[in-house]
C-alpha cells in the first residue's frame, strides 16, 4: 500500500510524506520546504524508518528522529522531530 500525507506543521513549513508499507514500512520519502542542517540527515531519517511496523508509535518515531538529530548535531528549522513524526504517523494510518 502506498499512502501520502501533507501538512503545514506548527513550526511553519510544509512536510510531505509518502510511504509504502504492508505490515512494515518498505519505503518512505520525506519532502517539503523546511530546512535541515546538514541536509544529508534526512536520508538517514528515511532509512531509519524502514522495517518499522506500520503501527509504530508516535513516541518511537520521535525518539528515532531525535537520536539522529543528536548524533549529527543537526538543526531543524521550520519543523521538529515531533511534527515530522506526526506527519509520518498520519501517513501510516
Amino acid at each position: 500500500m502506498i499512502a501520502y500525507s501533507s501538512q503545514k506543521v506548527k513550526e511553519g513549513k510544509i512536510v510531505k510524506v509518502e510511504a509504502q508499507f504492508d505490515n512494515v514500512i518498505t519505503k518512505l520519502k520525506i519532502s517539503g520546504d523546511f530546512f535541515l542542517h546538514p541536509e544529508e540527515v534526512l536520508d538517514d531519517i528515511e532509512k531509519t524508518m524502514l522495517d518499522l511496523k506500520r503501527d509504530v508509535s508516535f513516541e518511537t518515531l520521535v525518539l528515532k528522529i531525535q537520536n539522529i538529530i543528536k548524533n549529527y548535531d543537526a538543526q531543524m528549522i521550520g519543523i521538529s522531530p515531533e511534527s515530522l513524526a506526526l506527519v509520518i504517523r498520519e501517513t501510516l494510518k
Binding site: K16, K29, I30, S31, G32, D33, F34, L36, E39, L42
Partner: peptide, 9 residues
C-alpha cells in the same frame, strides 16, 4: 525548488 522538495509536486 528547495533541496528537500519534489519537483513534480
Amino acid at each position: 525548488i528547495g533541496y528537500f522538495q519534489g519537483i513534480r509536486d
